[in-house]
Design a protein around this nucleic acid. Structure first.
Lengths: 228, 228
DNA sequence: CGCTATTGTGACGTTTACGTGACATCCCCC
DNA sequence: GGGGGATGTCACGTAAACGTCACAATAGCG
């Protein structure tokens, strides 16, 4: 949930205000006063989100936005434009910047945070919402329910995500590092052995329906979910 | 017949105008400035109606409409296209892609509301007006009344909408963010924990008839309405 | 058959998420 | 303009979930 946000804004006061708020919300903030200086910052750090002021010295925000959306390297980065009231009617009209949202100055910190959250949520990697069923073990991402041969299985959030990932990638060995990446998220610092503990908890929960045998240990490599 | 409407429109001025009018008419409004950003929003919130601008940055409104109508998941959602004057010759094309109606810019709020009402009446008998009954808990959207085993249940407006949404989308787990989108509207900036408070008030109101057990907490995920 | 690297397991302290009551504010109707 | 319901937010308590460790068990290897 904490994201790296690049703020491209030439007015120091506004820039600092935004930065302060974003930091409060737990995000990592980078700042650039112009499009030019923002360029290599983007290439270097690949922020999760860019806040781009409409009016900038040098290359305007519009042109910069267009440029970003034309570059395959930066195209996927969500973009929120900051516009001042009065600029919208004429200038926004007909533009094809590909911005994901707009915030009109003056804005409240709460509004900004909400919009950021919304934009980040929308590009969230949606794992398939389809029901997975392997050997009588069924996991439904929509209802968040797991059943073994019809009998309900109780899982904690992490065990649920772990099982979901294993079931959507069966027959394949996953190292602890890979599991940490895909199940925990790549920006967390946890011991690799923690995976073992959660695997155990998962097996324990699957024991009543004998489905625990599906979760297999591959010595020296990691874990695997397999029917055989 | 309050409905949740998604407005896909890239010009903030027009977007805000439409949103204002829809809210006046009692609808819940969500907005997205592009087809790409609208996609996730649709999957998450299942709006009752989509207002789609003809001209959009990135994927055009036409292509997006076609895509929506080809997806079984979104096919049933009524669609109204917004076209600018001079694009009229394309109306036919728009209707061919599966749009249920079109509105030409500039339009009057009255016209827009009328067309929305017509489309909703024609297309969505399942969501808007029908009485919902789950395990003896009955909710009537028309009379705005809720009864548990015949006994009246007193709810505030927000709790009513919350319960209505949960009852029309049962078994499914809804994150706090999704509930904020669907029950509050995503242009309202409210803390996620507020959902908890309203869930509690809802449970409290349902307590006398033991129907509070229908509202379940799914730790780390959200809330769910279920018989089991 | 014994040694060692690797994994299983139980326990424990800490963190996080949720439930709950209180409160301040807003808004509408009287 | 004032009173009451509705709403959003905060603070606090509790219970579940988490991560880590220590030690036991196991498998693989020579």
């Amino acid at each position: 949930m904490p994201a790296t946000v690049l703020v491209v804004e030439d007015e120091p006061a506004i820039q600092e205000l935004i930065a302060f708020n974003l930091k409060q919300a737990g995000h990592i903030v980078m700042a650039a006063p112009s499009a030019e200086s923002a360029q290599h910052l983007i290439k270097e750090t690949l922020p999760d989100l860019i806040l781009l002021d409409w009016m900038l010295p040098g290359m305007s925000g519009i042109d910069f936005a267009r440029k970003l959306k034309n570059d395959s390297y930066t195209k996927a980065i969500p973009l929120i434009m900051l516009t001042a009231r009065g600029e919208e009617q004429d200038k926004v009209k007909g533009l094809e910047t590909g911005a994901d949202d707009y915030v009109t100055k003056p804005f409240s910190p709460r509004e900004l945070n909400a919009r950021i959250k919304a934009v980040l949520r929308r590009r969230a990697p949606q794992m398939t919402d389809e029901l997975v069923d392997i050997a009588g073990l069924a996991l439904d991402p929509v209802t968040h329910r797991v059943t073994g041969n019809g009998a309900p299985v109780e899982l904690g959030p992490t065990e649920f995500r772990l099982l979901h990932f294993l079931m959507t990638h069966p027959e394949r060995v996953h190292s602890r590092a890979q599991l940490l990446d895909r199940v925990w998220g790549n920006q967390v610092f946890v011991e690799e052995r923690t995976v073992d503990v959660h695997i155990r908890r998962l097996r324990q929960a699957l024991e009543p329906t004998r489905h625990n045998a599906l979760v297999q240990t591959v010595r020296g490599a990691g874990y695997r979910l397999s029917q055989r």
